[in-house]
């Protein structure tokens, strides 16, 4: 019998005999019931692990797709014209224009509807009849959602890079995409980093919506404990503290990255 259980026994006896508990006893009851009993702390850690997994891959999907969407929205792309006669190139330009239009449509659609609805539609609609891991559904739903926000952030970053940088790259003979990847994006990333950090933190917290499709992430872990202990809010406080821990660590990491980038060009 562990020390925690030894402390618990007199309180349990008091509860059974309907003897009112002191404040300290009540506090320990909450801690024991919601964290210690039946190794419930492991439920939070498992939930945290799922939240971290989903968030990591969703951020990855969101950043890559969002950057692509941002590039498709640039004036260089939307104003792309081809006056020559090569039919393949004409089709190519038409396809690029279509994707550019779609990017705009996509961003408006995602930003204009609630994440919860998107999650429900993706789970019960798009993947309604597909046997697929809930973690993957979570990554897809949150990643697709985040991409729209990342796109606008990165677009802002791209616009903030001086036009002369593109001209310098192109005048050296670098292609448009190569100029974008080697010269413009690194500079855009730096100016977009604080806003991106906000978006990542928002995304981590928003994965809690996935509890609606029965994915046992950190919020659901709190829900689960609560459905067993009937504590009004203690499980949510434990989950909340874990979210806070994650976002604080992330903020620190990004802050460090920002300082490193700042050092690289005084």
């Amino acid at each position: 019998m562990s020390i925690f259980e030894e402390w618990w026994l007199p309180i349990e006896a008091a509860v059974n005999d309907k003897i009112p508990l002191s404040f300290g006893q009540n506090l320990y009851k909450e801690i024991y019931m919601n964290i210690i009993k039946d190794d419930r702390w492991a439920n939070y850690l498992n939930g945290l692990w799922v939240t971290l997994k989903v968030s990591f891959f969703a951020i990855l999907v969101g950043t890559l797709l969002g950057t692509l969407l941002a590039v498709l929205r640039l004036p260089e792309v939307t104003d792309l014209r081809y006056k020559g006669k090569n039919p393949l190139r004409k089709i190519g330009v038409a396809i690029v224009h279509f994707f550019s239009w779609f990017a705009k449509f996509y961003i408006d659609l995602i930003r204009g509807t609630p994440l919860l609805l998107q999650v429900l539609i993706i789970n019960f609609g798009i993947f309604g009849t597909v046997k697929i891991d809930k973690v993957i559904i979570g990554v897809i739903a949150c990643g697709l959602n985040s991409a729209a926000y990342v796109a606008e952030i990165v677009r802002g970053g791209l616009i903030s890079v001086d036009k002369g940088q593109t001209e310098a790259g192109r005048s050296l003979g670098l292609s448009g995409p190569s100029t974008m990847v080697n010269i413009i994006l690194p500079q855009a990333a730096k100016s977009a980093l604080p806003a991106l950090c906000n978006e990542f933190i928002a995304l981590i917290k928003e994965t809690s919506i996935l509890s609606y499709i029965a994915l046992t992430e950190l919020t659901k872990a709190g829900d689960y404990i609560r459905s067993r202990t009937y504590s009004a809010f203690t499980p949510y406080i434990v989950s909340g503290l874990l979210y806070l821990l994650v976002t604080i660590v992330l903020t620190k990491l990004i802050g460090r990255l920002e300082r490193r980038l700042a050092n690289s060009d005084h």
């Binding site: 789970n123 019960f124 993947f127 046997k131 609606y212 499709i213 029965a214 659901k220």
Partner: peptide
């Protein structure tokens, strides 16, 4: 076992995921 129980806010959502083989 606890790890294999999918807990929904409503029973209807559980039935829908049964229809979708989840």
């Amino acid at each position: 076992g606890a790890g294999n129980v999918a807990q929904y806010k409503t029973f209807l959502n559980a039935i829908m995921d049964l229809q979708g083989d989840k």
